[in-house]
Every structure is written in structure tokens, then in C-alpha cells.
Design a protein around this nucleic acid. Structure first.
Length: 486
DNA sequence: TGAAATGTTGGGGCG
DNA sequence: ACGCCCCAACATTTC
């Protein structure tokens, strides 16, 4: 084996596992000695207002496990609480490594951070090498015949599938030689959440076991259900989805493992595996969109929709955030998010449609709220999803496609099981009335001792009128276009 | 990965 | 037997 580096520092970021980690495998393949570090980055954590952040706790538990695994191989994890852009070059110099290795991070702020680190390291003669790890195909690996990036999902997916080989999804080995992993200095052990300034006990580790072992357990559980994924995934009261998004976000499970399994089962005839693989491709799609169009972070992908006259409506926004819109399925969805940090995928569409169309509130407000609350928050996917729902994105739904929250509720939560779970004040209503309690007959309401406005809010907007308002706001843009062209 | 409005068809009630 | 109306069921188009 050719050793191109004597000492390497491997920097974990959103790849919190030892096994099947592209950058770590590269470090082990090329260095005599490998140090491992993770930084609780103050640039990210200090601005967080909510000190009860479930994600920090998830990371903490995942790091504890990662540290144990590294220790079993004679190494261990150095954990810092600092600004990564400064701390990494300082640590690299102190350890005397000749290279720092990490996996690619595609978010614009992370790209900027990595550039800062790269030039600081270069000033000390230390190399910075990064690797593809969190996607199957990145940036320019799947392009149209004319060499341009795709902006429509279906042709992207077809090209992605044509390009996929067993090699793209193979596992990277984790097999350090004796003495290859360096143990960290005692002073750099994992600090408690308390020391980091965060509250512990906010994450339900039964429902969401952390670390690579938690991910593996959850994946095994999903594999027992994957064949029914395509039928079950739209019903929020059912256990349809994989719930692996958090693990994908923090890299406690590698995307390659999921793709290998999904592909294999699809080939064996599983329709559920085929549909689920498609969801994994959506993830690559949005990463690729963000890499090519970083401006979507703050702007509509479709520039003309920057002209939409969104409403300023602090009360409406507050009601949406709190799950008090008076539309049971929307409120149940928002309360699920607030209580657990998770929201079912169909409900993300329903809730986002309601905010951007029914309330005509700027998608950026909703995107920021989800960013603050979602355990699986990922800039690329969250932004893509919001712009899809708002009709401002690439391959977005047409603006006139407006979800009817009552129909969606009747279709996908027919017995009101999900609503009853998160909006208990509606639990005593009948299956027929629970989707739109304001339509309940007075006799029926009295029989259930239910009073609209007292027990549950009246709808903050009327569906038909809100729909018409959204249509005309979006239509105004198109007319503006036409007159500008003339 | 919609929904609503509009158009078409065909059966049944009824004079 | 026939025309007429109503309306459900389905198809198409429009937003």
C-alpha cells in the first residue's frame, strides 16, 4: 500500500459513522496514523435560540457511539466546542499532521467554511482533501446529453438509474491496522450536553435510536415493511415511511447501503423498494440543484415568482406554527412537528401548501420554521420541497395545483386516526365531522358537547376564497410577464 | 405526488 | 312510444 501521508486528521461532519465512510476509508488507506475529530461548531450552535434542540442531542449520542467504536480499534474521537474554521487548522498544526481529510458538504455556508479551512491549512503546508460520501452522484456526475444540469426530476432519475453501477453503491472498508488510529488527548473527550449549553432528555431515543447501531436497527425494521412502502407511505397514521431521514442527515447510515438494498429488492420484484429508491434519487436531485443553483437558498428558482406579493400576516403565521389554523389535518401536522421534530412527508406538502397558497405567506418563512424544528432538516431537500409546494421551484407543481386540506384529510386520514393523536380536543368527533368541524350540525355538536371557537378554533381562512386569492396572486405574475413582453 | 368547473352520456321517472 | 328533465357517473378542460 502506498502511503502518501504520514499523519492525517480526519474531520467528521455529517458522516457520524466509522463503517463505510468514504473519507475515513481514504485516510486509512493513505496514512500511517489517523487522528479523528468532531467540532460542535459555534458558528452553527451559538445562533440557535432553542436550547432544547433535539438534533444536538442526536449528534451527541451518535458521537458517543462513534467514539466507542474508534476506541475499540485503539483510537478515539477528539471533540471540540469551537469555531470549526479556526479550530481545525489549529488542531492540525498542533498534531503535526500533513493532511486533513473530510467528506464533501454541499451547503453554501459549509462550502465557504471549507474554503476558509483549506486556505488556512495551505498556509501551513497542510493539504485538505475531501471526498464524495453523502450522495451517490454529485454535482456534475449526472448531466443531460448536452452537458447541462437537469432541472426536471423524471429525466434526471432515468439518467441516474442508467448511470448506476454496483461500484457506485459499494461499501468502503473500515479496517484500521493495529496502532493506526491515534487516541485523542484526555482533555478533548466528548463534553456533556450541559457543558455545550443544551438540554438533554428532549429526544425520544426509543422512537429514534441514535448512532450507527440505531440506524441499523431502524433500517432492519423498515426492510420488514419496504414491500408495502408504496401503499402505506401516504397515510400519516400508518407506519409507512422508513424514518431514516435523520440518520441520512447526520450520516449515521450511508446512502450507499440504502441504495444497494433498495436496488436489490426492486430487482427481485418489490414495487415498494422501487418507489422508495425513487425517493432516495429525489435526495440526490435536490443536492445537485443546490450545488448548481446556490441562490435558491434565498430566492425562487423561477425568478419571475420573486414578484409575488406575499401577504404580511404575523397572526396567520403564528397560528400556522402553533397548529391553530382551524384545519384539523394542518394543525395535526404542525403539532406533530412541534412535539416530535418529525412530520410525515404528505403532511409536509399539505402544511406547506396551506401556508403558501391558503395564507399566501412567503415560502421562506415556512422554510425557516421547518429548518428550526425538523430533526432531519437538510437545506437542499427542505428548500426543494418548499419551493415545490410554493410552485416557485424547479420542477415545481403548477401554481394552480392547490391542495384542498379537507379532501386531503378525508383521503389520507379517513378515520381521523392521525388527527385524534395530535389534536386531542377533536378526538370525540365522528369520522365524518373530524375533517371539517365547522360544518358539524348543531345537534351533533351539542351531543358531543363540542363548541367551535371554545374547544377548537374556527378556520382562519375560508377554503374557496383563499384558493381564489392564491390563484389571482399567481396569475397576476403571468399577466405582468405578458405585458412586459409587449 | 390536484381540485374545480364544465361537458358528455345514459338510465329512470314522469307526463 | 316519446320527449323532457334530473342526476349520477365518468371524461375533459381549466385554473
Amino acid at each position: 500500500m502506498v502511503m502518501t501521508h504520514e499523519h492525517v486528521l480526519f474531520w467528521f461532519r455529517r458522516d457520524l459513522r466509522a463503517k463505510d465512510n468514504a473519507g475515513l476509508a481514504a485516510a486509512l488507506a493513505s496514512a500511517a496514523r489517523v487522528h479523528c475529530v468532531f467540532v460542535f461548531d459555534r458558528d452553527i450552535l451559538d445562533p440557535l435560540e432553542d436550547r432544547r434542540d433535539r438534533r444536538v442531542e442526536f449528534i451527541w449520542h451518535s458521537l458517543a457511539e462513534l467514539d466507542r467504536v474508534l476506541q475499540q480499534h485503539g483510537g478515539g474521537l477528539c471533540v471540540l466546542h469551537a469555531q470549526a474554521r479556526e479550530a481545525i487548522p489549529v488542531l492540525a498544526r498542533a498534531l503535526g499532521v500533513d493532511a486533513v481529510f473530510a467528506n464533501h458538504d454541499y451547503e453554501p455556508e459549509a462550502v465557504a467554511r471549507d474554503e476558509t479551512v483549506r486556505s488556512a491549512l495551505a498556509g501551513s503546508g497542510i493539504a485538505f482533501r475531501t471526498f464524495k460520501d453523502q450522495v451517490i452522484f454529485e454535482r456534475d456526475e449526472v448531466l443531460t446529453a448536452s452537458g447541462t444540469p437537469f432541472s426536471v426530476f423524471t429525466p434526471y432519475k432515468n439518467a441516474w438509474l442508467r448511470r448506476l453501477t454496483a461500484d457506485d453503491a459499494r461499501a468502503w472498508p473500515f479496517a484500521p491496522r493495529a496502532g493506526q488510529l491515534a487516541p485523542p488527548a484526555p482533555a478533548s473527550a466528548l463534553p456533556s450536553l450541559d457543558v455545550l449549553g443544551f438540554t438533554s432528555g428532549v429526544l425520544d431515543l426509543q422512537a429514534l435510536p441514535a448512532g450507527a447501531s440505531g440506524a441499523e436497527r431502524m433500517f432492519e425494521d423498515f426492510l420488514s415493511r419496504i414491500d408495502r412502502y408504496h401503499e402505506a407511505r401516504d397515510y400519516p397514521a400508518a407506519r409507512g415511511p422508513s424514518y431514516l431521514s435523520v440518520h441520512l442527515r447526520f450520516g449515521t447510515i450511508p446512502i450507499r447501503r440504502l441504495v444497494r438494498e433498495a436496488w436489490q429488492r426492486w430487482q427481485e420484484g418489490s414495487r415498494g423498494a422501487e418507489v422508495w429508491l425513487s425517493e432516495l434519487i429525489w435526495r440526490d436531485f435536490y443536492f445537485q440543484i443546490l450545488a448548481h443553483h446556490p441562490r435558491v437558498v434565498n430566492e425562487s428558482f423561477k425568478a419571475e415568482y420573486e414578484a409575488i406579493r406575499w401577504r404580511e400576516d404575523p397572526e396567520g403565521f403564528a397560528a400556522w406554527c402553533a397548529g391553530r389554523t382551524g384545519y384539523p389535518i394542518v394543525d395535526a401536522a404542525m403539532r406533530q412537528l412541534n412535539q416530535t421534530g418529525y412530520m410525515h412527508n404528505r403532511l409536509r406538502m399539505v402544511a406547506a401548501s396551506f401556508l403558501t397558497k391558503h395564507l399566501l405567506i412567503d415560502w421562506r418563512h415556512g422554510e425557516r420554521y421547518f429548518a428550526a424544528k425538523l430533526n432531519d432538516y437538510d437545506l437542499a431537500a427542505n428548500n426543494g420541497g418548499w419551493q415545490w409546494a410554493a410552485s416557485t421551484g424547479c420542477d415545481a407543481q403548477p401554481y394552480f395545483r392547490i391542495f384542498n386540506p379537507i379532501n386531503q384529510s378525508q383521503k389520507f386520514d379517513p378515520e381521523g386516526k392521525f388527527i385524534r393523536r395530535y389534536v386531542p380536543e377533536l378526538a370525540r368527533l365522528s369520522d365524518a365531522d373530524i375533517h371539517a368541524p365547522w360544518l358539524m350540525k348543531p345537534v351533533e355538536a351539542r351531543a358531543r358537547s363540542f363548541e367551535l371557537g371554545r374547544d377548537y378554533p374556527a378556520p382562519i381562512v375560508e377554503h374557496a376564497a383563499a384558493r381564489a386569492r392564491a390563484l389571482s396572486a399567481f396569475k397576476a405574475i403571468r399577466e405582468g410577464e405578458n405585458s412586459a413582453a409587449v
